[in-house]
């Protein structure tokens, strides 16, 4: 089955009908195709986290329709039988290390698969496989997750979601609070998963360099509404608009902009360091 996720006029309100009522999403239309790499960006409080909880029906839209694979989720959908969706769409929440609870790393990683009916043995094999994938060796299997360092806990937590073998992987700022090397390793691991296993990735981030380097498509949210979408190359061309929305531009774009001020010309602004280097080497940039 192809796992496309489709939003149609999705709106969401927190605590409707009370004085604490808060509108978080307005008429969102978006599409996450199977095997794609999508980034969702926006200022703090723009509704990114609310939106991503719609991707596996943790929240149900108060208006509009979310279609996940074959399932249609509307306001009145009941909470039963959502498990198949949750298995297909794995979410790595912000600071996922807070979700660890088992006695050993192996048990914690196997917890997800076992909930979805994988046998004890197969789950253990999965735990082993994904522990390796996130860069920890087998000696960690029997250790308590609470004895690990912060970065290692993060890896174990991510392995726990990966072990469910989702077709869509949703990442909410997966590298927040990691050191530069950990950040790079992790982003490369996600890219490998995306390329080798054809997993669709939805990345929520504040780091525009990650958007530029990895994503095929980007959605920009502002105050709960979708204000722009397109390929990163196109979205970042309109630098003034992007800066107005306070989401920043990739480093390479910013640098190219400075060069432009000094008199260099670019046909279009580069968004990654490689692209910038190529443009400069081609000499096209020089006046």
């Amino acid at each position: 089955m192809v796992m496309d996720i489709h939003f149609e006029q999705v709106g969401f309100t927190y605590q409707p009908g009370t004085p604490f009522e808060q509108r978080a999403l307005y008429d969102i239309d978006l599409e996450i195709a199977a095997g794609s790499y999508t980034a969702i960006v926006g200022h703090t409080g723009s509704g990114k986290s609310t939106l991503l909880q719609h991707l596996n029906a943790l929240l149900k839209p108060t208006s509009g329709t979310v279609t996940i694979g074959e399932r249609k989720i509307i306001a009145t959908t009941d909470n039963k039988n959502l498990k198949p969706i949750r298995k297909k769409v794995g979410i790595v929440f912000q600071f996922p290390e807070a979700q660890l609870f088992e006695e050993t790393v192996a048990k914690d990683i196997a917890f997800g698969p076992k909930n979805f009916g994988v046998s004890e043995e197969a789950a253990k094999a999965l735990a082993q496989e994904y522990l390796n994938l996130v860069g920890l060796d087998a000696s960690y299997m029997e250790r308590s997750p609470f004895d690990l360092s912060g970065g290692q806990m993060r890896r174990v937590a991510i392995a726990g979601v990966l072990a469910m073998e989702p077709e869509v992987l949703v990442l909410d700022e997966p590298t927040a609070g990691l050191d530069p090397k950990g950040r790079k390793d992790m982003m490369e691991m996600f890219l490998r998963l995306h390329q080798e296993k054809n997993i669709a990735i939805v990345l929520v981030t504040h780091l525009m360099d990650d958007v530029a380097n990895f994503a095929d498509y980007v959605y920009v949210l502002e105050k709960g509404a979708l204000v722009k979408s397109g390929r990163p190359v196109d979205v970042f061309q309109d630098v003034t608009w992007v800066q107005e929305k306070q989401i920043g531009v990739p480093m390479a774009t910013e640098f190219a902009l400075r060069l432009q001020e000094k008199g260099m010309r670019f046909d279009r602004l580069p968004i990654t360091a490689d692209e910038l280097a190529e443009m400069l080497l081609a000499g096209g940039g020089v006046k």
């Binding site: 943790l58 807070a98 979700q99 609870f101 917890f111 909930n115 726990g160």
Partner: peptide, 30 residues
């Protein structure tokens, strides 16, 4: 944490009393 565990396939407040109690552990310990 509840959301994170739900995403990992935990059903809170469903099933028999024993199942319900067991589902609380992944919430309580963290």
């Amino acid at each position: 944490i509840m959301n994170a565990q739900r995403a990992r396939g935990v059903d809170f407040g469903e099933g028999s009393l024993v199942q319900k109690m067991k589902a609380i552990i992944p919430l309580l310990i963290p």
